[in-house]
Amino acid sequence: MFHSLGRYLLLLRLSFKRPEKFSVYWNEVMREMVSQGIGSLGIIGIISVFIGAVATVQVAFQLSSPLVPQSIAGSIARDSTILEFSPTISALVLAGRIGSSIASQIGTMRVTEQIDALEIMGVNAPGFLISPKILSGLSMVPLLTIVSVALGLSGGYLACIVSRDIAPTDYIVGLRDSFKPIIVGVCCVKSISFGFIITSVCSYFGFYTSGGALEVGQSATKGVVFSCIWILFADLLITSVML
């Protein structure tokens, strides 16, 4: 375990050494941002709308009492979406979508000796392959989380219109009522941390792949599994510390 942690930290240190040519690295960052961000919008949008709608309907069902104002459903759906559903569930989905792609791509380059060729040419392979992915994850995962929050709350509004369990006006009142800015801060810290975990952990497993095509698939699986575990652990830690 400590050996793996040491290799992981060493890989991170090598990844953020001074680049040989900044423009090349910058082009890689832009390419990764398009791949990770634009490529994930569809799945994040669909999941967020449905999760927001389901959360609102379930809250309305559990609070179906004449003594409880209907607007409270909007407040609960808002806080749960911003604090937990959007950052954590989006990160778990992105771990499967982005993480597996990163581990497979780097793992394939390792087993086909492309990484060895880069090192022979004097290129810092960890910096060229991994740092653009991490920088992209640090920027795109928070942006995708913001989109997820907006679509999740919109999905809750659509659920109010369709199900009619809660009046849409009461839902809007609940979204505005007793808002605490700290929940936005927690959401931002979570999304940035999750973006780093997904990209760095999956890059580690891909970079140290050995063997052939079978091992590439195993590395991708390990990257996704360990990313999800660390995302859940970081979720608990951040929530405990900040709230």
Rank of each mutant, 00 (worst) to 15 (best):
Q62L: 12
M30E: 08
M109Y: 13
Q114Y: 11
K222C: 09
I182S: 13
Y8K: 05
V49L: 13
V149H: 03
G217M: 02
S65W: 11
M121W: 03
I183G: 01
I89P: 00
I198Y: 11
S178P: 12
P66F: 12
S15P: 09
L63C: 06
V162P: 15
F50M: 07
G122S: 11
V201Q: 03
G127P: 14
R18K: 05
S48D: 00
V93Q: 01
T169C: 00
S23A: 07
G174E: 06
A150F: 13
S131V: 15
K133F: 11
I51N: 01
Y171F: 15
A234T: 13
R31P: 14
W230R: 01
P168W: 07
T209V: 05
T209D: 02
G99S: 03
V184D: 06
V224N: 01
S240P: 12
C187K: 14
L236T: 04
I44W: 11
L118K: 12
M109K: 06
I197Q: 05
I82Y: 12
F50G: 01
V29P: 06
F128D: 15
L12E: 02
I130W: 09
T56H: 06
T221E: 05
I238W: 10
I166M: 02
I44D: 01
S4Y: 11
I197D: 04
L158R: 01
A95I: 11
D177Q: 06
Y8L: 13
A95T: 08
V123L: 09
L92P: 14
D116Q: 08
S48C: 03
R176T: 02
V225F: 10
A73Y: 08
S139F: 15
L158N: 03
L92C: 05
I115S: 01
S178H: 14
V93Y: 03
S104P: 13
V173S: 07
S75F: 13
L236I: 03
I38V: 15
F194E: 02
Q58W: 10
S148M: 02
I72R: 05
I76Q: 00
S71E: 05
V24T: 12
C188G: 00
V186H: 02
I130Y: 09
D79I: 11
L151Y: 05
M33H: 04
Q218A: 00
D177H: 06
L135S: 02
S4P: 02
I120Q: 01
E119G: 01
L237M: 14
V147M: 06
I46R: 00
F2I: 07
P142M: 07
F179H: 02
Y25N: 07
Y204N: 09
Y157V: 03
S227D: 02
V34G: 12
S203T: 08
E113C: 10
P142L: 04
I172R: 00
R7Q: 12
